[in-house]
Write a protein that binds this DNA or RNA. Sequence first.
DNA 1: CCACCTCTTTGACGATTGTCAAGGTGGTGC
DNA 2: GCACCACCTTGACAATCGTCAAAGAGGTGG
Lengths: 113, 113
Amino acid sequence: MVSTEFLPGLASPVLGRSVPMDPDAAHGLALRLKALADPVRLKLLDHLLVCPSQEDCTCNLAPLVQLSEPTVSHHLKKLQRCGFLTKERRGMSVYYRVSPRAIDAVAGALRVG
Amino acid sequence: MVSTEFLPGLASPVLGRSVPMDPDAAHGLALRLKALADPVRLKLLDHLLVCPSQEDCTCNLAPLVQLSEPTVSHHLKKLQRCGFLTKERRGMSVYYRVSPRAIDAVAGALRVG
DNA sequence: CCACCTCTTTGACGATTGTCAAGGTGGTGC
DNA sequence: GCACCACCTTGACAATCGTCAAAGAGGTGG
């Protein structure tokens, strides 16, 4: 893990754009793709996107993916650091919510057809 | 690595589609994302997309990313196994070429906005 | 205050990954 | 045949990753 800070925004589309991709763009896109490249994290994102309230807390997410809470917390943090999730504390619970634009930015960077 | 065979095709869009994503879809998409989630492999794909002939061989790609030929061969194999690259032997050289549709399929699976 | 609940951090562990050196395969040309 | 070139495979290594148990941090309610 490079840093605990959020990653900088994804600088416009990058793959196959006539000008060779610069190393920082490759590194940044790779970090984001790595954050998405895990079945558990995909399942968590998918659940948060399809569930009625569009948000959920760790104690509900852990049984959903059948993993311990610390492990789920770790996955959520990874997604959050890339801007794919936001979190909000309300009372005792912490509610996570997807940031669709951050995910679409990655999808857009891959679009090449 | 699960298998030396090609992965099956990506079964239509998967993320945030009102029906919860099934485990196989999550696993399959994660494998493809993992194959893309490396700066070297992104650089290789980008080069093959922007270079005039749209194809190149290992001996040209290795110096491009400043890695040994075996290492580049390993990366190319990983991309090939997910259908992102095709290879074709002509004479002594092996020419690699991008399959844009395979990459777009992943981009489409991520599109969620 | 204390008991309790939710969540995160830390430390450890095995599994996976990216890399290279060494050796093997396949094709070219003398 | 042999020498050579491009490429791939194998085996090893350090680094990273996913996981959990244990302990800490933050908030609720008696």
